[in-house]
Write a protein that binds this DNA or RNA. Structure first.
Lengths: 198, 198
DNA sequence: AAAATGACCAAAATAACAAAACGGTCATTT
DNA sequence: AAATGACCGTTTTGTTATTTTGGTCATTTT
């Protein structure tokens, strides 16, 4: 019997997790207090500590759940019938769009920019690492199938994410923003085809 | 007669510039005071304001000088006989190495990380923009000569810088550091040749 | 007369201190 | 046995006093 997924009449653990998820997304890591989470979850503060050793572990669990959601989005987007490049573009687009619309990620990004909260930064890095690891898996498969030239899958996945982000958000004031179509076209150009003449 | 380059027995303007350059490099923008610069330059504080309207203009002049130095390094590295790809790699390597060894850039980077000083950030962005603009010029020429496939030179230069930085510094904890040779090989692979199979 | 200066000022940064809020514990209650 | 909230040492925040800073300008120096 799995004690973590079990639905009791009053599932206090789930209540805590849901209240914490809402609070971290609304106020960020630093401004979320354990008293607040306890009140929102309708449990005593001490109860939280029967499930989670401390605030950090509670937060890490919330981040783990978000990463699992991202994986679901990615798996739903992946189509084995499509060529690697199309899957890559579709997955990057879907996963990053989901990520950027997710309240928790938006709030944590703001918190890192504004206060540099180490925990918030750690959470965002964990999310980024999981995206890279997921892409790296597909890159590895594509290499095995001979769809792309051999390389270190992890490094290639990292470079792809960085390039995609450079074309979309991060560029900021250094180049005028590109619409979705332009981003896809440029990503194909820079990352897949290369600049060299034939 | 050029009053700015003229060498008088006591060239106060130059004294101020040199003292300011040393101070900004040693203490950053915020922690450099005008009293300190005046003392180090051996002039009265009021004298600084006969040459520069305020602290910001003095700082901007120092940054302009650094950018000019970077341009000299780049021009010295550029070899018209070499193919575009080789020049690009050499220039990126030389310019970024010079930049990263320059006390002012190192200190300003630390200041931005630690305090987010807007002026320090603005200075670093000006340096980055000037590097991109310089590379863009060479990209434009390479396109005209048919050495690389057509594209927006400014965007391409921006992407090249981002990729190079992703392979060297910025990667940080997300991939193990690569030595100079590996960086060059990977940069060629990702940026110039592309991932697509022939 | 022109250039240079440093005492001076309002505004901003910092230090010092008091008060409030925080994460985490545990004796007590349910 | 599970849940709780009053409680505790520590950290964070709010407040005020003090210092420092960028910039000016009447005076001095050249």
């Amino acid at each position: 019997m799995d004690m973590t997924t079990d639905r009791k009449p009053t599932d206090r653990r789930k209540q805590v997790l849901e209240a914490a998820a809402r609070s971290f997304a609304a106020f960020g890591y630093k401004a979320t207090t354990m008293d607040q989470v306890a009140k929102a979850a309708g449990v005593g503060k001490g109860t939280i500590y029967t499930f989670f050793a401390n605030k950090e572990e509670l937060f890490e669990q919330i981040v783990r759940e978000l990463i699992a959601e991202l994986k679901v989005v990615a798996e739903r987007t992946f189509d084995p019938a499509l060529p690697f490049a199309d899957n890559l573009l579709r997955i990057l687009q879907q996963v990053l769009a989901y990520r950027d619309r997710h309240g928790l990620v938006v709030k944590l990004s703001q918190e890192v920019r504004e206060f540099g909260t180490p925990m918030a930064n750690g959470g965002l890095e964990a999310i980024e690492r999981s995206i890279i690891a997921y892409i790296a898996g597909h890159v590895g498969e594509a290499i095995a199938k001979g769809e792309v030239r051999p390389s270190d899958p992890a490094l290639t996945a990292y470079m792809m994410l960085k390039m995609y982000l450079a074309l979309t958000a991060e560029g900021g004031h250094l180049h005028e923003p590109l619409d979705a179509e332009q981003v896809l076209a440029h990503f194909r150009f820079y990352c897949l085809e290369g600049l060299a003449v034939d």
